[in-house]
Each structure stands twice: as structure tokens, then as C-alpha cells.
Design a protein around this nucleic acid. Structure first.
Lengths: 208, 208
DNA sequence: GTCTATACAGGGATAGAC
DNA sequence: GTCTATCCCTGTATAGAC
């Protein structure tokens, strides 16, 4: 470190700051590796390596592997909140929803390679007899459903909650297909269709 | 066994017949248990127990666990072919597609508890670095896409393959959400929306 | 063909030195 | 607070008796 600031950061507040930093690195690594490899095939050693933390030390920060899964879920929730927070700056709810779809399409390569982080995690956690964490993954999805439902309600559309389910289902479905077929273009084409669908909802019923 | 037929079946053709039977039982058990528990959390002992076959004996029929996964995928393909074969009896392609949706909704409780058998399997297999089987799951999905695309083409609709992707995506998405939120009603409500969507495709463009 | 016993590997978790 | 060494269980796969 050449800068004084860097030096100060590294050695003057070592204890709490560095500890918090390791925790943060482990959380970020967990979110990434669990997404890429899945829960069952990911070892603590994998996460420790990516976080650049010695294996045995992991247990100082997280008592069990499940706590790392939970940390990954919090990370995904935080990312979601950050995205919806930015979209909330837009005044038109329809534009907010379109912005959400654009964000999904923007991550098409990740989706085609590893699927939706929350969706694939939900699938894996739901397979466990020990149902300690599967509700947690559902909660992240519900958070997205609530936000989307809020936008549809603001647009005065009928059955806003059902519309939110349709939108999020479409996203999960196209992510799954893009992943299974390893084809990011699916995200692009289906994203376009979703935008048209949103526009068609505003068109009033033409029957007398 | 009281009937002569039963007795004959049990003891006169023991070798090949009984062997084929065990193989069939193991395949069916694999399809069921792998769906319910997922690949990684399922042990060979689990499958052997459900199939009522001694653990060590499994290796006589399937040399590796992966071969059992492959057998499960074949089972799902067979079920799919049986369903589409029945739907092909209907003369109207639109009715065939509606029949498909009705079949999905009919299995809503299974979907809410364990998700779509093929979809969740695809998610799990895609997480494996060793990409030996993930293409296989994609092939089953593609088989469904092809059949659906064929129907849309028969209806003379534009971009039939994209429409097929939209339909199958919707199914995978609603299954995932129904599963994550443990709510079979999602299947019912989204199924209704899908039927309306199909009907709306037939309505000609009203703009001049 | 059928089944038991077991070899072997991998990974989660812990003990305890520093 | 940090890290190494290791315990111990679980699960795949095999050897070999019957």
C-alpha cells in the first residue's frame, strides 16, 4: 500500500474492521460460488478459497454451512433491494417494470450459464427434507413479487398480484430454459415479448 | 398367488423377466426419488429401498449413479411422449395445447411440492462442472419445445418457436413459483391465464 | 443372478496450538 | 482472533461368497 489511507486502513483498525471484512468476503464468495456450483456440490473449502480465507477459520465467522447459505440469500436480497431502489427513482410504474426486464436481459449471459441465483437456490433448497431454509428462498421471491404487484396496482390494472406472478414466473421460466439450453438469446427474445405484453395491458378493452 | 397365471409368471420365466422387472422398478424408483429429493441428496440406498432391491444388487443393473439419473430422464421422456401422443388424437392444434396446459394444472399438487420433474433436474444437472448429463435434461425440454412449436406452426402463427418457448417458460416459471411458495393455486390461476393467452393469439389484429 | 461385507474417498465439523 | 491437523460420518463402489 503506497497511500497513507491504505496503510491506515490496513493496520490501525485491524480487529473489528478486518474481521468484518473477512465476513463480507465470505458472504460475497458464498453468494457467487453457491450460485455457480449449487449448494450440495459446494464445499466450505471452495468458498474459503474464493474468499481468500483459511478453511478452518471459516467456522469462526459461520458456525455451519447453512449459515453461509443464509448469508448468500441476504446478499441476493440486498442486490434486489438495490435494483428496485434505483427503479423507484423513475416516476412511471410501467417504466419501472420495463427497467426490471431490461436488467434481467442485461444479465442474460449469467442466466444462460448458471440460471437465476435465487431461483436455482430455491429449487435446491426445496429438495431438502430438513425444510429449514426453503422458506427463506421463497421470501426473496415474494419480495420481488410484492414490488412488482405494487407497480401493477399503481397502474390500476385488475388482479395486480396475479400479474406480478405472471411476470416473475416468466422471468424464472426463461432463465431456466436459457440455462438448460445454454442460450442467452432466449432471454433477449422473451424479454422483448414481455415488454410488448406490458404495453398491451395498458391498451383498453376494445369490445363494447 | 392364487391364480395359475400369477404362479406361472412368478416361477416359469424367472431369469430375464424378473431381471427386466427389477430394472424397471429401479428406473421408476429413480425417477420418483430423484424428483422428490434431488440428485445430490439421494443415495443409492434410497432408490434401492423404494424399488425393493438390495443395495449391493443395484450395481448389477446400473454401473454408476449417473446411469440411474439417465434412466430417470428416459422415464420422463417416456411420460412426455405418452402425454403428447394422447393429445395428438385431438384434431385441433389449439385444443392440443390447451390439453397440455390442463395436464400441467392437473399435476399442481406435485408441482407445488416438488416442482417440475424435468425442470428441477435440469437445474441440478447444470450445476455440475462435469457436464456429462446437463445436455440430456435440455434434450427432454427441447422435445417438449419441438412438439409445442409444431402445434403453433400448424396454427399458422408467426414465430411458432418463440411461442413455444413462451409457453414452456411459463410452465417452468409457474412450477418454480408454486414450489418455492408451496402454493398449488398458482398453477391454477396461471393456467387460466395461459388458456386466455392462447385464445388471444387466434384473434386477428384489429388495427387497419 | 443375488446379496453381504467392506474398502475407499470426500467433506463437515472440532480440538487445540499459536 | 487465526490457522492446522484431524476426527468421524456418509456414501459410492467393489470383492467375493452363495
Amino acid at each position: 500500500m503506497l497511500s497513507i489511507v491504505g496503510w491506515v486502513t490496513d493496520s490501525v483498525k485491524p480487529r473489528a474492521a478486518r474481521a468484518a471484512d473477512k465476513r463480507r468476503r465470505l458472504t460475497a464468495a458464498a453468494a457467487q460460488v453457491l450460485h455457480e456450483q449449487g449448494v450440495e456440490r459446494t464445499t466450505l473449502a471452495d468458498i474459503a478459497r474464493v474468499a481468500d480465507v483459511p478453511v478452518g477459520n471459516v467456522y469462526y465467522y459461520f458456525k455451519t454451512k447453512d449459515e453461509l447459505v443464509q448469508a448468500a440469500l441476504s446478499e441476493h436480497t440486498a442486490h434486489l433491494d438495490e435494483l428496485t431502489g434505483r427503479l423507484d427513482q423513475l416516476s412511471d410504474p410501467l417504466e419501472r417494470l420495463k427497467g426490471l426486464i431490461e436488467a434481467w436481459v442485461g444479465r442474460r449471459d449469467i442466466a444462460a450459464r448458471y440460471g437465476c441465483p435465487t431461483g436455482t437456490l430455491a429449487v435446491e433448497l426445496d429438495k431438502r427434507a430438513d425444510g429449514t431454509l426453503d422458506a427463506e428462498a421463497g421470501a426473496v421471491i415474494r419480495r420481488l413479487l410484492d414490488w412488482a404487484g405494487h407497480q401493477f396496482r399503481a397502474l390500476d390494472l385488475p388482479d395486480p398480484d396475479d400479474l406480478a406472478v405472471t411476470l416473475v414466473s416468466a422471468y424464472q421460466g426463461m432463465s431456466l430454459l436459457a440455462n438448460a439450453l445454454r442460450d442467452p438469446d432466449i432471454m433477449t427474445r422473451q424479454g422483448t415479448r414481455l415488454i410488448h405484453w406490458l404495453d398491451s395491458l395498458k391498451a383498453p378493452d376494445r369490445t363494447p
